[in-house]
Amino acid sequence: MSNLTPLIIEHLLIVLAAVAISAVIGVSLGILSYWVRPLDKIILWVAEIIQTIPTLALLAMLMILFGLGNITIIAGLVLYALMPIIRNTYIGLEAIPAHLKDAARGMGMSKPQQLIKIEIPFSLPLIFSGIKIALVNSLSIAVMGVLIGAGGLGYPIYRGIQTNSLERILSGAIPVVLMAMILDYLMTKMEKWMVRKSPQN
């Protein structure tokens, strides 16, 4: 069991790194879709297409680009995490009542000021919920990393399959499930706090 701890940490770091990168890209693309009207359909469509590529195929393609190792699985996770983040950002921004935008414009806010002062704070709970979905999904997808030479909890599971050892498989799978449950619980709490704190409720 003790040799599992570094794997858990590595797994978590891979996922956190990937989701952090994805959040930056995804929120930016969400904002872009919101600002530049004809782009929204294209961006959302591409993100959705990526989502449908089988994990194994996507990782294999990325492996050609990035070679073996953690970078490849992180790249894969970034791509998978984009969809929920872009979509929730876009929906959150779109849901802002027209009169608030009108007031912000009428007060003399520039577009970036409207975004930072009004629109992002307003849609933050939804954006955060997109990140949460991405994070929980990534925890289990990251297990596939073992196939392209990445670290993390994929290794004990893979070994377990090869040696036909249920115990080994579970030693990898259970921490993934627990991490997912704990992170989901914590982030749901934070999300509820944000919704409660956002005063329009």
Binding site: K117, S198, P199
Partner: peptide, 9 residues
């Protein structure tokens, strides 16, 4: 404006 439009945040 009629809908007041105070910023809720």
């Amino acid at each position: 404006i009629q809908q007041i439009g105070l910023f809720p945040n």
